[in-house]
Simulated scan of single mutants.
Amino acid sequence: MLIELDIDAFIAQKSEFDLLIDARSPKEFYESHIANAQNFYALSDEEHQEVGTLYKQVSRNDAKLLGARYICQNVAHHLEHIAKSYKIGSKIGIYCARGGLRSSSIAIILSHIGYQVFRLGGGYKQYRFYVLSYLENLPHYRFIVLGGNTGCGKSELLQSLQPSIDLEKLANHLGSSFGSIKGAQPSQKAFENSLCEILCKIDPNAYIFIEAESKKMGTCTIPALLHVRLLQGYRIEITAPLEQRIERILKEYESMTPAFFNQAMQMIAPYIKKTVKEAVLHAYEEGNLSEVAKILLIEYYDLVYKKPRHIDAILDNADESATLEALNALHVKLSTV
């Protein structure tokens, strides 16, 4: 069975698929893809480039013949894994870049074997249009926004609150000069896809817990309308004792390499006093990371942090369980108004 679905039907049935196949090249898949998809490519990166060049510069027919040969070889290899992991009759969703030959070639073979195959018409291009349209016309308008100085435990609170969105986790960035310590960030497309997938599962009328962030988080940019909604949200300023803030910073930065530290210090050097920079470097050389964190919190992070003009409430996070209780009570209160 082979059925072609439009994007709305595909999204509605996506959770029912036993396997979701991205038939694009590994390079395309790595940049961004639909959540939970697996990359059973029709053409490898090299093959995709070769066939594309042949198609544009030499002969369309020759390109189709070469592409078909490569696809048959790749599908033969993929079938070994698919057959072992997914029994005949399983539901399989599939897409390629534009809903063309790459996905249709694999879909036809799988359907003839006996799988229930659902192909996305218009391919990944249609999915991206869906994501961008959703974010540009965001139906969610109720946000409880957690702000506050670095190290006050906002991210930890979000992990225990529902519904919530952790933008720093999605962007793999801490939203500061040392924010890229988590490693490589997702592409902007991947960031938007993940954000959309989470939002789609949340009632548009529900209050959503989220952390206050700058529009730019490293290389990722928060969608314009969402950022506006954050600025308009119910703002809670989270505070915490300095000792606890230092402990949290140390946990975040325990994997920091000397090279990363020096690079980050160069970035913030224009914004701190020379004596502060020297004190931080000396503490780091001495291996006193607690002192490094303390100085940076007091002499850099706290000074550059800009409090909003309007704050609806202030919560001290010295006791996380008490803070969570207060936040959950607030959520109930706001939701019943």
Rank of each mutant, 00 (worst) to 15 (best):
D319H: 13
A264E: 09
D18T: 00
E291T: 05
K333E: 15
V58Y: 15
M256P: 04
L303R: 06
N317K: 12
G287D: 10
N137W: 08
S155F: 02
I92E: 02
L5S: 03
A12D: 12
E4G: 07
S32D: 13
L199Y: 03
N193D: 12
Q159C: 05
Y301W: 07
A23P: 01
L297A: 08
C220D: 02
G89A: 05
H227W: 07
Q57N: 14
L138D: 00
F261L: 09
A23S: 09
S180H: 15
S335V: 07
S15G: 04
A12S: 15
C96W: 01
I165E: 00
N39L: 14
L330H: 04
A269Y: 12
A83C: 07
Q263D: 15
I11V: 15
I236H: 00
T239C: 07
L327D: 01
S105E: 06
L146C: 03
E16G: 05
L79G: 01
F191A: 02
D18R: 03
A264Q: 06
V228F: 10
R235C: 01
E299F: 06
A9H: 05
Y127K: 03
S32W: 01
E247L: 09
I236E: 01
H140A: 02
L66N: 00
I311E: 05
F143Q: 00
K216L: 03
I236L: 14
D302C: 03
N61P: 01
T336L: 09
Y284C: 13
K84Y: 01
Q185N: 13
Q244K: 15
S111K: 14
A206M: 06
K84T: 12
G114P: 10
Y55A: 05
R60V: 11
S255H: 06
Y41N: 14
V337Q: 12
R128L: 10
R69H: 08
R245V: 12
Y86N: 03
I88C: 06
G99W: 00
D8M: 13
L195W: 05
S194P: 04
Q263M: 14
F40D: 01
L66K: 08
S85P: 00
S44F: 15
Y300C: 11
E213P: 02
Y141C: 08
K273D: 13
C72W: 11
Q232W: 10
Q13K: 15
A12C: 07
D316A: 08
F129E: 10
S180F: 13
S44I: 13
F178M: 07
H77W: 02
L101M: 15
E211D: 04
K27M: 03
Y300G: 00
L79D: 00
K87G: 06
T239R: 08
D312L: 11
N74K: 01
A224N: 13
